[in-house]
Design a protein around this nucleic acid. Structure first.
Lengths: 177, 177
DNA sequence: CGAGGATACATCGGTTCCGATGTATAAAAG
DNA sequence: CTTTTATACATCGGAACCGATGTATCCTCG
């Protein structure tokens, strides 16, 4: 997920690590902070895989900046990851939001719609957090107010997202004539 | 988080690893599956810390079961983790839901309310995913339909949860007279 | 002019995660 | 009667994560 965010931000414009960190923090930091000790190794991984290039820009501000630029292969990799996300990227909201944040980089409306449809299919599966045997329990059936809260919140999220998904899919279908 | 779920489930009743896995899968598996190779080491960690005990129950079904029982120290540790969750457990929805799923084990309504209040404070912070400088952007200001979706969904979730939090806090306050 | 804070990068070590793989047994299906 | 599926546990190795810590510069404010 971190790697996707790095590729996504660099697709717009070259950045150095520190600025990248600020952007990633703005995007997902309030939920899950990004440690520098996680970011720099991730940058190195992507560099080793030749998905990005590093150009040292000496002493303009403080320590010498390493400006990171996405390579062509990096751009292709970004599009691959966006077009064909792992199941976890679809089901886990944190990951899903990261996919959504950069989905516009996947230029083809059909391909974008296909990704949204995977999320739609997931949300339409009858899943709960609590079961009586195999039967999913509804909020009303729980005594525990906290567990009832989980279901209430999840249901509201799900409703809002389903509505959004359906209207967005409609307009993507219209765009893809 | 996994550890919290293990402690939480064992607080109700002793279980062997495989059954534990099924319960955790029912709880959070549709979002984030639990690998056995994550579960068993986690059990071992908790056992080494003397938070749970293992009793081998030979050949009743298939392979010999290791029935896991929470120790007294394990119960205390569960309550400690519930009463004083890390910031990440409050901000990350996946983790937060796990806290909520077991919050009833924290018997004191005041203590339960204190945890909910931390989540409330977090949700009331003016946070966005996208900024113009320091100013959080609203959904309407974004061209990108996917990013607009993120904000729309996040807002709906947040509204639903705020409503639930406030009513639940009211009734907890009433219970704690 | 000295202190503090922001900028910028980096490493280290411990912990955790997880896919792949292995070993058995018992029950159900064909 | 044999294959498949479910039960039940376990290890290994590579990857990822992350808190702590270190280094060095520049800017601002008192």
């Amino acid at each position: 997920m971190l790697e996707l965010a790095i590729l996504g931000f660099l697709h717009d414009t070259p950045l150095h690590g520190y600025e990248l960190r600020k952007r990633i923090t703005a995007l997902t930091g309030h939920v899950k902070p990004v440690a520098e000790s996680t970011l720099y190794p991730a940058i190195k991984r992507l560099e080793n895989a030749q998905l990005l290039e590093r150009a040292t820009q000496p002493g303009s501000v403080a320590a010498p900046r390493h400006v990171l630029t996405l390579t062509e292969e990096g751009g292709r990799e970004l599009r691959r990851r966006l077009a064909d996300p792992a199941r976890r990227d679809i089901t886990d909201e944190n990951r899903w939001f990261t996919v959504l944040a950069f989905l516009r980089h996947l230029e083809d409306p059909e391909a974008q719609a296909a990704v949204l449809r995977r999320r739609l299919a997931f949300l339409e599966e009858p899943a709960s957090f609590f079961y009586d045997g195999d039967r999913p329990l509804r909020a009303e059936e729980l005594d525990d107010p906290f567990r009832r809260g989980i279901l209430t919140i999840a249901r509201a999220t799900s409703q809002a997202e389903l509505t959004w998904l359906r209207t967005t899919l409609d307009s993507l279908d219209a765009a893809g004539h």
